[in-house]
Design a protein around this nucleic acid. Structure first.
Length: 485
RNA sequence: GGCGGCGUGGCCGAGUGGCUCAGGCAAGGGACUGCAAAUCCCUCUACGCGGGUUCGAUUCCCGCCGCCGCCUCCA
């Protein structure tokens, strides 16, 4: 799986990433040399995951690909939240899964299974590598209870009717991670929402099921029947698979303030570690703009929204690469279509080069290839600067001095990060071979006859008719060919 | 209100104190074609506004305007 034993390609010797905690670029220094653990906040599976959500899957995928290309042994954990994610922080808030079950009449388990599958399918359609571990919160209840007990034993919790809460006053660094002002937070007047909580920022570790209520998802615990709070699952599951300290934690910017702040508080309090996570990565949002309007009509923007418009999912992957992950990116169908056009051309040129050298990626002149290899990988080593990496791709495609061997050796190498599947791709511009459809062959022969007699009216009519059914006629010196559009 | 970010050519978007400052898409011109398509070549348009620092700012500083995000669940 990994590129063990390989030297990193030129430009990828020193990887720097933007750490949210330190608010600057920092060098990647794995806790265990040669190995990197990544924890990615995955979906809460009560609803479809939007294209915006998928952005926070795409950049960890790019990250893991880059790290593997660098010769590191990567363990990528992506969690599935199938319990405990509250609709609201107040005691009135309910579990999202439970609420979805009530709303749809399906069981929480059915809902979770369905949306988990949909999400995995969408990930694959965007060419994201399968996670190495895909832990589900509901499968890790004992770990979560154990962690709450540890926190309780160390005096970081208190119990109220509603459940067990983390006492942020017991963790000095609470405000540090997100640059919070706790006094300010206290003064903002959310007090009426927090009931018996000692501080507005205190958060649920375990929620008790009220007397007389029966939940679909509930477990016995030292604090009574109930379910775990949302934040505790990430601390518990990351520890289970990556240890009490690990290298990289990813998520969306929206998580910095609450979710990740709380994860840090729990984990550093329970394990007496600091920093718990070496590097925190957060992606900015996809800017939906006017598309938001359609969301209120009940249409959410998902991978299938693209497919319905005839846009292939991989176009969105290319679109994602066009902007830096820490920058908001303006979404529009037109922009993704444009990305799709660019990708189609990219694949075309890659396949032409690949065929020309019989698929052998080991050719290429070092004098011409190495500088470009360095440019590409050093762009990605610089906090995953995919837009800059793409410019190298186009330089490789357009560069007149490059041979097919140069091109394919470079593009095959680059595709380890890009993930467009260039080694297996078929040429999107390729013509369909004669003989594959007798009817089309017949029409083309008819058209050729018309062309020979310079009866272009007839010839063009035949071409137009074929175009109307999605068949594009392509004339070549060797005769006409065609392809479906 | 607090915190953070952003405003670049028709669109999406990199980047930089000066060196012809990306790349893609679109558009225009040319080659090729009977005409197209695809491909190739060429071209165009830029750094929100006002000050300041500087020999020189799109890039640094200040102010203003506009946009977005987080602060409640959210990727």
């Amino acid at each position: 799986m990994s590129d063990d034993g390989r030297r990193p390609p030129p430009g990828l010797e020193d990887i720097r990433l933007h750490d949210t905690r330190r608010r600057r670029l920092v060098p990647l220094e794995p806790l265990v040399p040669g190995h990197v653990g990544i924890y990615t906040c995955g979906p809460t599976v009560y609803a479809p995951q939007t294209l915006g959500n998928m952005r926070s899957q795409l950049y960890p995928d790019l990250l893991r690909r880059v790290l593997r290309a660098a010769g590191l042994d990567v363990l990528h954990v992506v969690n599935i939240t199938d319990v405990g994610h509250l609709t609201d922080d107040a005691s009135a808030g309910d579990d999202k899964m439970e609420e979805a079950a009530r709303r749809t009449g399906q069981s929480a388990a059915e809902i979770a299974a369905h949306w988990t599958q949909q999400w995995l399918t969408d990930r694959r359609r965007l060419a994201c590598c399968e996670p190495d571990v895909l832990p589900r919160a509901a499968d890790h209840i004992p770990e979560q209870i154990a962690l709450v007990r540890t926190l309780e034993a160390k005096g970081h919790t208190y119990v109220i009717d509603d459940g067990v809460y983390f006492d942020v006053a017991t963790f000095d660094r609470y405000a540090e991670f997100a640059g919070l002002d706790l006094d300010e937070l206290e003064a903002t007047g959310r007090v009426e929402n927090v009931d018996a909580k000692r501080h507005p920022a205190d958060f649920a570790l375990w929620k008790r099921t009220p007397p007389g209520v029966r939940r679909q998802q509930e477990w016995d615990s030292p604090w009574g029947r109930g379910f775990p709070g949302w934040h505790i699952e990430c601390s518990a599951m990351s520890t289970r698979y990556l240890g009490t300290r690990f290298d990289i934690h990813t998520g969306g910017v929206d998580h910095i303030r609450v979710h990740h702040t709380n994860e840090v508080a729990q984990s550093e309090s329970a394990y007496d570690v600091h920093p718990w996570v070496s590097i925190w990565l957060h992606n900015e949002f996809l800017e939906l703009g006017s598309v938001k309007i359609s969301k209120s009509k009940g249409h959410v923007l998902v991978v299938d929204s693209l497919v319905e418009r005839g846009i292939e999912p991989l176009a969105f992957r290319y679109f994602f690469f066009q902007a830096h992950y820490r920058q908001q990116q303006a979404f529009s169908f037109e922009a993704v279509e444009a990305a799709g056009t660019a990708l189609r051309r990219l694949v075309h040129h890659a396949v032409v080069a690949r065929e020309a050298v019989g698929g052998d990626p080991t050719g290429g002149d070092p004098g011409r290839c190495d500088p470009r290899r360095r440019s590409f990988w050093s762009a990605l080593a610089d906090d995953l600067n995919a837009p800059r990496a793409l410019t190298v791709v186009w330089d490789v495609i357009r560069g007149a001095e490059l041979t097919a061997a140069d091109r394919w050796s470079l593009l095959a190498d680059f595709d380890r990060a890009l993930g467009f599947g260039l080694a297996e791709a078929t040429d999107p511009e390729a013509a369909t071979a004669a003989g594959s459809d007798p009817r089309v062959d017949g029409l083309l022969a008819e058209r050729e006859a018309a062309r020979r007699t310079r009866d272009f009216t007839t010839a063009d009519r035949i071409r137009d008719d074929l175009a109307a059914e999605g068949i594009e006629v392509v004339d070549t010196p060797a005769g006409p060919t065609w392809r479906r559009r």
